[in-house]
């Protein structure tokens, strides 16, 4: 079997006193679309930031193409990040630039290409996401779905090897959602990209993923191909897939015994 492009080993991460991840291990295979699903607030974005080395785990390691991303110098990390792209939930477009300049930004920063070639590349990328006509609009003039597509064009501008999508479907209307699902699928096939999609939109992502992990309770509670996930007999996985309010993943945020809160006993 091929060496996975991203390999997380026994990673533990906490923020202050709050443990986000107890002990996580997962692999992302090259050229595959890997989905990471889980309820909101579980720290899925944090996981992507850990892979991109914006955050450092308490213990354990994250390997990208065999390199421990947390153990290398800043210069090496920056070299490595050129191979990784991330699509932020908000799009994170630079609001002071047009869509064109946003997509051209990584090219202008990291390559010596002249403006004619940059123009061609940017237009090709925008054509791929269907926004060539919106090249000279400002990000504030775009709808949420269009902003995310523009950000996607920027993310693929440098032809990365790995692209990480943070909640690409959140808050989209059905049409934009369909467009994004189709785009992510098409891009990963056409460019032979490795993709990590972090989301809680189970149906959409299971329709395009090659492999999926389910995160809950600070650890991975299920993994497998979409078919295996659907067939899983784990109570936790089924609760998540069917969207039950209560179950192994509790409805209540951890709190004191309720009699103490309600019957006047002060801390």
């Amino acid at each position: 079997m091929q060496e996975p492009i991203v390999k997380i080993d026994n990673m533990r991460f906490s923020r202050g006193d709050r443990v986000i991840y107890e002990d996580i291990s997962l692999n992302v295979e090259k050229g595959k679309l890997t989905a990471i699903m889980g309820p909101s607030g579980i720290g899925k974005t944090t996981l992507l930031k850990l892979i991109g080395a914006q955050l450092t785990p308490d213990s354990g390691s994250v390997l990208f193409q065999g390199t421990d991303v947390h153990a290398i110098s800043r210069t090496k990390l920056y070299d490595l990040r050129r191979k990784i792209s991330m699509l932020f939930q908000s799009g994170a477009l630079f609001t002071n630039m047009s869509v064109f300049d946003n997509v051209a930004f990584p090219l202008r920063e990291h390559t010596q290409l002249d403006e004619d070639i940059i123009h061609t590349i940017v237009m090709l990328k925008l054509e791929a996401v269907g926004l060539r006509g919106a090249a000279f609009l400002k990000p504030s003039e775009l709808s949420g779905g269009m902003a995310r597509r523009a950000a996607l064009a920027r993310a693929i501008a440098l032809d990365p090897e790995l692209i990480m999508y943070d909640e690409p479907f959140a808050g989209q209307d059905p049409i934009s959602m369909g467009v994004l699902v189709k785009l992510i699928k098409a891009l990963s096939k056409a460019l032979n990209l490795t993709s990590i999609v972090v989301t809680h939109d189970v149906t959409e992502v299971l329709s395009i993923a090659d492999y999926a992990y389910i995160l809950a309770n600070k650890r991975i509670i299920g993994e497998g191909t979409p078919e295996q996930i659907r067939q899983s007999d784990s109570e936790l996985v089924q609760q998540f897939l069917q969207g039950k309010a209560d179950g192994p993943v509790p409805f209540h945020f951890p709190a004191d015994d309720f009699s103490r809160s309600f019957l006047g006993a002060k801390k």
Binding site: D79, R81, R82, Q89, A92
Partner: peptide, 12 residues
């Protein structure tokens, strides 16, 4: 708006 984060991730 995560623009600083996205600069970081673009290796800038």
């Amino acid at each position: 708006t995560e623009q600083l984060s996205s600069l970081e991730m673009m290796a800038v």
